[in-house]
Design a binder for these strands. Structure first.
Lengths: 220, 220
DNA sequence: TAGATTGTTAATCGATTAACAATC
DNA sequence: TAGATTGTTAATCGATTAACAATC
């Protein structure tokens, strides 16, 4: 209700694009390029240059230079800071099946400031093992560990039947952000953020786009 | 340019929501519920009922019934058909690391009409093995197999450095829809659809939403 | 200086929501 | 009949694009 309520959230679409800009800027940096202009970035990403400039406006701490563009080095720092990639956040993951294992072992999370500090699984054969240095514990220890270490992010990679149950447990333990990879809708209180990684939705979008492509091909 | 160009594509946001409706409707069907109304679905999904009705309008083959809602059974069929879940589409996957393995073994794709018919990897230890009945072949055989079996969908799960190279190969072989799980931007011709499964973007969205939640908590 | 690019304001576009008549 | 819900048209909202002055 207060005008401060949408204080720190920005256009979803914009936040979605920033990591892509960041990736491109890092490539440029590796090539020794010093300045990147909005048209350059826009061209590479397939968006317009105005959009790039608009996206960067709330992010940059120092202005871009007319004719030159933005300094690659400082822009990378600014985006990293804006996205919170510069301060490491602990996370737990529940469900260490093949997908869970893949995520636990994913090296790339470090660059995004995400550190998976523990995994949980009901399967006694998996619990009490270790994957790439990450301890896997029985789910019964979840609440205690999350409370004790003040973990705020939970990743759900359990079968869909258990997704809600695990989400409830996470919320009770103090998790405020849930990254849900289970193909299930989960209900959480208002003060908890959920991001669904929905394979069915993604696939639906892809095949829907594909319909046009097939038609385009046949029209030739 | 022709007015038929956007013939078969619908609102992206709408296509994204339909799989979620479908999931809920299946739950209702299992419980023996015969009719589902827009307000019911909307309430469960956290959207408005007008949005649900609008989303369903281009999907349904027979009208909903005032006071009752939509027949669950026929609505499920209609959404399945609309999303193309009812006709199976072959796909190949390139890069059989831990993520690739997880996707190859994912049982849920069947329900979405996706059949991974072959996997590819450069690693000679992985190539020529088999995962859950899916043959893994050396990448050198990709073009020949895709052309021969008329596969239209390609899934990329290789390290980011090779994503563009693999995409190019897929396009050359006749793939028209690419599901890209590598954290890299890939360039493709206009007549090819790309859906990026971007972990960095998802995480950025989650942590951005999270900022508000923390603030909300502290304000109490 | 001329030209490219930034930052910003106004116009457009598309998606969501509000309002409401028609229906069972 | 009264009330809930459908289908649809009009209003609102937000994001993208167009236009342009300021800058190096």
């Amino acid at each position: 209700m207060a005008e401060s309520s949408k204080n720190s959230s920005f256009s979803l679409a914009s936040v979605q694009r920033l990591p892509n800009y960041l990736r491109y800027l890092k490539e440029l940096q590796d090539e020794g390029v010093e300045y990147a202009s909005a048209p350059m970035i826009a061209d590479k990403m397939g968006v317009t240059s105005v959009l790039v400039k608009k996206d960067l406006l709330p992010v940059i701490q120092s202005q871009g230079k007319p004719k030159l563009g933005y300094q690659v080095k400082t822009l990378i720092d600014d985006i990293n800071q804006f996205l919170g990639y510069d301060n490491t956040k602990d996370a737990i993951i529940v469900g260490v099946g093949s997908l869970g294992k893949a995520l636990v072992g994913y090296e790339g999370f470090k660059a995004y400031g995400l550190n998976i500090c523990a995994g949980f699984d009901v399967n006694p054969e998996i619990a009490n093992t270790e994957i790439r240095g990450v301890k896997i514990l029985p789910v019964s220890k979840l609440i205690n560990l999350v409370e004790r270490l003040h973990v705020h992010i939970g990743i759900i990679t359990v079968p869909k039947e258990y997704a809600q149950e695990i989400a409830d447990m996470m919320v009770r333990a103090g998790i405020i952000a849930i990254w849900n990879w289970a193909p299930a809708h989960i209900n959480v209180p208002e003060n908890v953020a959920v991001k669904n990684e929905d394979i069915a939705s993604s696939l639906a979008i892809l095949t829907n786009q594909m319909k046009d492509k097939v038609i385009a091909k046949e029209e030739k």
